[in-house]
Nucleic acid binder design. Structure first.
Lengths: 203, 203
DNA sequence: CACATATACTTGTGTTGTCCTATATACCTC
DNA sequence: GAGGTATATAGGACAACACAAGTATATGTG
């Protein structure tokens, strides 16, 4: 029921329509810790309203379809406080990529390395996007701003750790692949030192 | 459809019953990257059998209920290889705890810090358990063993990063809380150095 | 004027995953 | 011999979530 509380959280900061929540909140602000389908947001709003946690009023608009703007009620605010103060157990770990890696023993070395390198690129792109957000959104001294910054930094930290792990894993697996690769003719043992523009295998 | 492939992956390593998959595979080996409900495992096995990816045969047992032992078929093995070689996009980020933190601005400082400290304890416990596993399971030079070790190390790396982030966050928030706390009588400024058994605030 | 785009919301449907319960056998312990 | 534990499987109910399509209106663009 995290989505419920995310919506309550956003509505506490300011009233919003389902459309606002989707385009402004979930597609941007919350992007690094939660996402939500548009249909799901509307259905959840309906449910929260029935539960008395939010109230709705329709805003007529001339140039646009009418908006149903939701606000947090007192009960909603209390529920949000109750929930934020609740200690919850760690959720089970779930990572399709690690699963893929765990069962990739059947792949040729090159395919395995390609998989890891592709992953590295994707994770690096995510990290770059996060850093952009830290530098643009990471200002402000209000309590909300500090907490928002902390959530961004959490994801930055784990993402960096993932990149480091990927680098180590790529190094390890290429070394293993090199060992087991049928040596290209005349290269079992180097007769000459590597040229200066060639990288050594290990520091 | 990750569960499907996890089952194919385990069955490639050795034939197993639904019960084996639950108790030996998902509750232990795969614990750090996937979990599965017992009911779901049986239903998935049925589906995989209909799809021709696994085959079943019943083993009569005298002292125990009969077991239905599943094995990977040729088609199943091919599907597994196809899937492991497939590059998939990063899944969206989902973290209920970060959401909680993001919307915790309404909490008193002490509750907020309690939340983070409780989290630290839980994450540390997970890390300890992972380290145990690395030292007991992290042996062997087979391809499977290496990949298994890498998956464990991935989770160790991100878990460590999370602990570091929690420590930094706790430090930051306690400092902020200290600033805004109404100063206890006579303690705006320390007149005496801390006694030797008192901890300094920072190394 | 046709068409795409942005706004704003609704409905249907399927999949995944969780929880709970039921069934059955055999062992072990009190 | 009653009750707990381990083995082994199966079913219903349901919540969460994703995907897809449909309904409107107004604006901008070629």
């Amino acid at each position: 029921m995290s989505l419920d509380h995310a919506i309550l959280g956003f509505l506490r900061e300011q009233p919003a329509s389902g459309y606002d929540l989707k385009t402004l909140c979930f597609d941007h602000d919350a992007q690094h810790f939660w996402t939500a389908d548009q249909a799901q947001i509307y259905r959840t709003l309906e449910r929260l309203q029935r539960a008395g946690f939010v109230s709705a009023r329709v805003r007529r608009q001339r140039s646009r379809p009418d908006r149903t703007v939701y606000s947090l009620t007192q009960a909603g605010s209390e529920e949000l406080d109750r929930w934020t103060a609740t200690v919850t157990p760690l959720p089970p770990l779930r990572d399709p990529f690690l699963m893929q890696l765990r069962f990739a023993a059947g792949l040729p070395d090159d395919d395995l390395l390609a998989l890891l390198r592709a992953r590295r690129i994707a994770v690096q792109a995510r990290l770059d996007a996060l850093r952009d957000r830290v530098s643009t959104e990471g200002r402000g001294g209000t309590r909300e701003a500090v907490l928002h910054r902390l959530t961004l930094e959490s994801v930055v930290a784990t993402t960096r750790a993932t990149i480091d792990w990927l680098d180590d894993s790529i190094d390890l697996l290429s070394a293993l692949a090199e060992q087991s690769r049928p040596a290209p003719a005349g290269s079992q043992r180097r007769l000459f030192a590597p040229r200066p523009d060639e990288k050594g295998s290990t520091p």
